[in-house]
Amino acid sequence: MKTQKFKTNINCGNCLAKVTPMLNAEPKIKSWNVDLESDDRILTVESEDITPEEVFKTVIKAGFIAKPE
Rank of each mutant, 00 (worst) to 15 (best):
A25G: 11
P27C: 10
G13P: 03
P27N: 13
S31W: 02
A62L: 05
T44A: 02
I60T: 15
N24Y: 07
D39P: 06
I65F: 08
V55K: 01
E37P: 03
D49L: 09
T8H: 03
I10N: 05
T51A: 03
S38I: 01
T3H: 12
K67T: 15
N9H: 09
K18T: 08
I29Q: 01
N33S: 14
T8Y: 00
V45K: 05
V59I: 13
K7W: 07
G63Q: 10
V55S: 04
A17M: 11
K57W: 05
P21I: 11
L36C: 04
L23R: 06
I65S: 09
K67Y: 01
E48L: 05
T58V: 03
K28A: 14
L36W: 02
K61T: 09
K7N: 05
V55T: 02
G13M: 12
K30E: 14
G63I: 04
W32G: 08
F6A: 04
L16G: 04
N9V: 05
T3I: 15
K5I: 02
N11W: 10
T3G: 00
F56G: 00
N11F: 01
P27Y: 10
E37I: 10
P68E: 15
A25V: 03
E46T: 11
N9G: 10
T3Y: 12
F56I: 08
F6H: 03
K28T: 10
I60R: 14
D40L: 06
T20A: 13
P68Q: 14
S31C: 06
R41W: 04
V19Y: 06
T58D: 02
E37D: 15
N14D: 13
K57Y: 05
N33R: 10
T20P: 08
N11K: 13
E54W: 03
K28P: 11
S47R: 04
D35P: 01
F64C: 07
A17L: 10
K30L: 14
I10C: 07
V59L: 01
L43C: 11
V19M: 07
S31H: 08
E54L: 07
C12Y: 08
G13K: 12
L36N: 05
C15N: 08
K67H: 09
L43M: 08
F6G: 09
P68N: 09
F64K: 02
I42E: 10
T44Y: 06
K57L: 14
E69F: 14
F6K: 05
A25Q: 08
M1R: 11
K28Q: 15
D40C: 10
R41M: 07
L36G: 04
G63S: 05
P27M: 12
V59W: 00
V19E: 03
S38P: 06
P52V: 13
A17C: 06
E46V: 13
I42M: 02
I42H: 01
I42D: 09
N9C: 06
E54Q: 15
K30N: 12
E26N: 15
A25I: 06
E53I: 13
I60E: 15
I10S: 03
C12R: 04
C12I: 07
D39Q: 12
T3R: 11
M1I: 13
T20S: 13
T58S: 11
